[in-house]
């Protein structure tokens, strides 16, 4: 792992803890998550449903559902800004300009009563990118072309577009102000398979053109292999393994959960590169097990796993959070065992 003061560092999340308070439970959605991303880099964030991926992204945007969701610990530094303690006005200035987020479902992400042109123009106006309406309109046309839509359609409403086209509009909105970081939460899961590839291809092109760093939340390991520089694998609110794509797909040693996901041998040539289902269910985040959170499903579980929460061991930038990795690995200094609050 890189150090904080790396020149290229863009986002650094340390020991993030997020909970949701619902009527009947406290849900520990994120439990001591550490994540770093450099400028221009693409990080794939992979994990089962309920692992806390969306919650992590929403925390960076500081858009957790008010009153229900809150950050209870840790820090988020984005381009040197302390997200957790920033004022609301400062956050508004960041959202859409320094950091953008694409939500999972394009069908419901756009406002049905505003034209798509208006919805793109709005983000430019919020961030005072242009002084007059003509320049805004010119930029709207430009960005529409960039995402492969005809500028003539800017006066149309979302219901006049297909799912894939809507997601292009959503991407246009997210990238209109050329943010340094894009949080893409399963941007293609809701789309047809054929459209998925097109949209991903377009995102990749744009990202390279604009030098945007991307956190790509996905279930698709094939997508990760094709588009990401690094991968972080998330389980029950923490990162249990992270490393370069090359490492994750080719290293011999893995976290048992990752091995499970990959179906023991990652085979990139196989057609189905979806996550492998693993026996058992993810623990209920309102009632997490002690020790390693994966021990209830882990085929390699040993005594220590049931009681002590493992630290991450790092070898050549490949970090694994597992007791079996303890010998030979270097424990990350200063890292606390998160998620053991009750």
């Amino acid at each position: 792992m890189k150090t904080t003061d790396s020149k290229n560092g863009l986002l650094k999340i340390e020991n993030l803890q997020v909970e949701y308070i619902t009527d009947d439970a406290r849900v520990f959605a994120v439990n001591g998550l550490n994540l770093e991303i450099e400028k221009g880099e693409t990080l794939g964030l992979v994990g089962e449903t309920g692992a806390g991926k969306t919650t992590t992204a929403l925390s960076v945007m500081r858009l957790l559902p008010p009153k229900v969701g809150r950050v209870i610990g840790g820090s988020i530094l984005l381009d040197g800004i302390d997200i957790i303690h920033a004022g609301e006005a400062d956050m508004r200035a960041l959202r859409g300009s320094l950091v953008s987020m694409i939500f999972q479902d394009p069908m419901t992400s756009l406002n049905p009563v505003l034209t798509i042109g208006d919805q793109i123009a709005e983000v430019l106006i919020f961030h005072d990118r242009y002084n007059n309406r003509t320049d805004v309109n010119r930029r709207v046309d430009e960005i529409l072309r960039l995402v492969g839509l005809s500028p003539e359609r800017k006066n149309e409403y979302p219901h006049q577009f297909s799912g894939g086209m809507k997601q292009r509009v959503v991407i246009a909105i997210a990238l209109a102000c050329e943010p340094k970081l894009l949080l893409a939460d399963e941007p293609t899961t809701a789309l047809d398979v054929t459209i998925q590839a097109q949209v991903l291809e377009m995102m990749k092109e744009l990202q390279e053109k604009l030098h945007t760093a991307v956190i790509l939340i996905t279930h698709d390991l094939g997508v990760v292999a094709q588009t990401c520089n690094r991968v972080a694998i998330m389980y029950a609110g923490e990162i249990i393994e992270t490393g370069t794509v090359d490492r994750i797909f080719h290293a011999k040693r893995h976290h048992p959960y990752t091995e499970g996901l990959f179906g023991s041998i990652p085979d990139l040539t196989k057609k189905t590169r979806r996550l492998n289902p693993i026996d058992g269910l993810m623990p209920d985040p309102s009632n997490l097990p002690a020790g390693c959170k994966f021990h209830t499903r882990c085929p390699k579980c040993i005594d220590i796993c049931r009681t002590i929460h493992p630290r991450s061991s790092v070898r050549d930038g490949h970090s694994i959070r597992c007791h079996l990795e303890g010998e030979g690995g270097v424990p990350v200094a200063g890292e606390t065992a998160g998620g053991e609050q009750t």
């Binding site: 858009l63 508004r92 987020m101 939500f103 049905p112 505003l114 983000v123 919020f126 959503v170 909105i173």
Partner: peptide, 26 residues
């Protein structure tokens, strides 16, 4: 609670803009 309200907030809209422009019309 709709997604497009969250989208509006993710764009950096003010609370007032979210309520009156995005929510009320719907």
């Amino acid at each position: 609670r709709q997604d497009y309200i969250r989208t509006a907030m993710a764009k950096g809209a003010t609370r007032r803009c979210v309520i009156f422009k995005h929510a009320l019309r719907n």
